[in-house]
Design a binder for these strands. Structure first.
Lengths: 343, 343
DNA sequence: ATTGGATTTGGAAGCGGTTCCACGAGGGGG
DNA sequence: CCCCCTCGTGGAACCGCTTCCAAATCCAAT
């Protein structure tokens, strides 16, 4: 029995006589032989696994996307390899290290640098971006700007005028973050309503639970905001917790809107902008799988829709705080650092 | 420049002159050369990745364990490969397919069959079990029986006598599930308190959100329970939701205790038995990493402790329902199918 | 200049598969 | 009965790296 024959049997290739096939199978069973995946990968150039690259994959929002991805991959026989990116420096490295380890790549909330995209393309590895727009690869996105606008508009409609924004620091590197896009929507809504943007109400912090600081800073202000739009449910929830620790009540003292509608939000009764997280994963996986089957999906641009979910953390501002800017000062402009204006 | 030299430079081996090293590095940079991980793995026999096998890895409890695992692996340079096991048939297969793909294995809530363990050992792949006891490999566990007892005792102390249990169906195959161990604790607590076990109050369903059915069945009983111990927070939360849909109020109409203390539980105000999920992941990863460094951890048996967290979903039973079994019947025994006894 | 030991370097072998090519056997037609 | 074609089979070459061994180089000491 030559190695070739055994290989043919195992891979179900034709042109093996029924007799030998049976005999090979018999021996395989007896020896408990299991082909070495690594050797196979080296030889064929296919690893039968797809990589998922995400910053902080244990974040609820990422997990919910993964919930959409995992079943499809499992069903199609691909291994799911998770690449956790916790520090920005890792980004370039990951995209590079992934080559040769996976057949396809799904990135979440991350735009690979052009150069890396080129390498991936050269290596024949299809890439699908979820939660990140890009001109030259398949993407699944929502309109974050519009979402930010919706959230802010909701607060405006309730009568709020001093509305803060709590977002993630743009860690720069590659493309704008969802947080900054949502901030853009926030600014647009304010502008549309003729409410001046107050830079001191825009608080950015590195991703994580830094809401306590923000809450403190906000209430240290001469005239604190009456509402906050947090660029993620996690931020919003942390904010609420911080507020409670400060003795402030939500929504009585401060309204809070989040973004994502993760499972927690439902339990916390958080008003938020819902995006179809799981569905985004499913779509992404579908796209990637078709790409792996040779289809050309480079042009695919899937847009998912958003929906404002009003729950218990937003309410009209309290009497007396309803009014527009305190005694009609018209100072603050759209400028970035106009802190100096008379108060 | 021979291939050997290049390899030596890339792997930082000694005995390469500074001059050639620099020259090689130069060319590498220029060409943008990146070693092929697969080939390297085949050659060295080390993949630099560890597998994590878990049933339904997107479950909150699993995720929280993963939160403990991921940072350690990342820090030690190991790749995290996730193997999702959704159907019981997959189990044996996964353990087998993992050989040659990973250097070490962390399984969550899953006991590999003996035969597979032997294969893994033969392949030199260390294995660590989290949330599953085992005699011959390293484990990180909690005392589920005790936890079940604690939860039930809490309800008994509040005055409940008709206490239901909502758990996962034992999908058999390998070792008892956490759910069944918790059920054992439930039975023990009842026994200790001299409260007869009522088989019709023990409801098992396949993992997932089947609590609605259970809720219906429970309230279809002639004398419904006044409390439920659910073997996981997810079950408990789903149960609460189902109860609300039924118009029953928690804890007024029914007290509910969960198990795990996942993040959701905090927001939902669920009374539950807290186990250190993230820590279990960290411990497991630590164990695995030492094993990968050659240490012998086979004997390691880490026991983490449990704590009852009383929140808002438990209260004394309502007046009139406090009493022990309706009019002192002493019939039901510990027997499994003693349904037949006179009522 | 010669010799010997230490340091570098080149490249073959091997990791465990797949695949391609060549060869042998078997069968049908002339 | 021979030839040719087809089908099945064996095994070499190759995937891209590491590692080991032998050869080359270097330098200091004699």
């Amino acid at each position: 029995m030559g190695v070739g024959t055994v290989s043919r049997v195992i891979n179900g290739s034709a042109s093996v006589s029924e007799a030998t096939r049976r005999r090979v199978l018999e021996v395989v069973a007896e020896l408990g032989y299991e082909p070495n995946a690594t050797a196979r990968a080296l030889s064929t150039g296919r690893t039968r696994s797809v990589g998922v690259i995400a910053p902080f994959f244990t974040r609820p929002s990422v997990i919910e996307r993964l919930r959409g991805v995992a079943p499809l991959l499992a069903a199609s026989g691909y291994q799911l390899v998770l690449f956790d990116v916790e520090r920005p420096e890792q980004r370039t490295g990951v995209f590079r290290s992934v080559i040769g380890r996976v057949d396809g790549l799904l990135t979440i909330s991350l735009a690979p640098p052009k150069a890396e995209l080129r390498r991936l393309a050269a290596a024949g590895i299809p890439v699908v971006l979820v939660d990140q727009a890009h001109e030259s690869v398949a993407t699944v996105t929502v309109d974050d700007v519009e979402g930010g606008r919706m959230a802010t508009e909701h607060l405006l409609t309730l009568g709020h005028r001093r509305i803060a924004f709590a977002g993630d620091t743009v860690d720069g590197v590659h493309g704008a973050s969802a947080s900054s896009r949502r901030c853009a929507g926030y600014q647009r809504a304010l502008a549309d309503a003729g409410v001046p943007l107050r830079p001191e109400l825009v608080k950015l912090r590195p991703h994580g639970r830094h809401a306590t600081e923000i809450a403190h800073e906000l209430f240290a202000l001469a005239t604190p905001p009456t509402a906050v739009f947090a660029s993620s449910d996690l931020q919003a929830l942390a904010m609420i917790e911080a507020l409670e620790a400060l003795g402030r009540r939500v929504p009585d003292d401060l309204s809070v809107v989040g973004f994502d509608d993760v499972e927690l939000a439902r339990y916390a009764g958080l008003t938020t902008v819902a995006q179809p997280l799981q569905d985004s994963g499913t779509r992404g996986a579908e796209l990637l799988l078709s790409a792996l089957e040779g289809e050309d999906v480079l042009q695919a641009r899937q847009h998912l829709s958003l929906e404002l979910v009003v729950r218990g953390t937003t309410a009209p501002p309290r009497e007396g705080e309803t009014g527009r800017e305190e005694r009609g000062l018209k100072t603050a402009t759209d400028g970035m650092i106009s802190q100096s204006s008379p108060t």
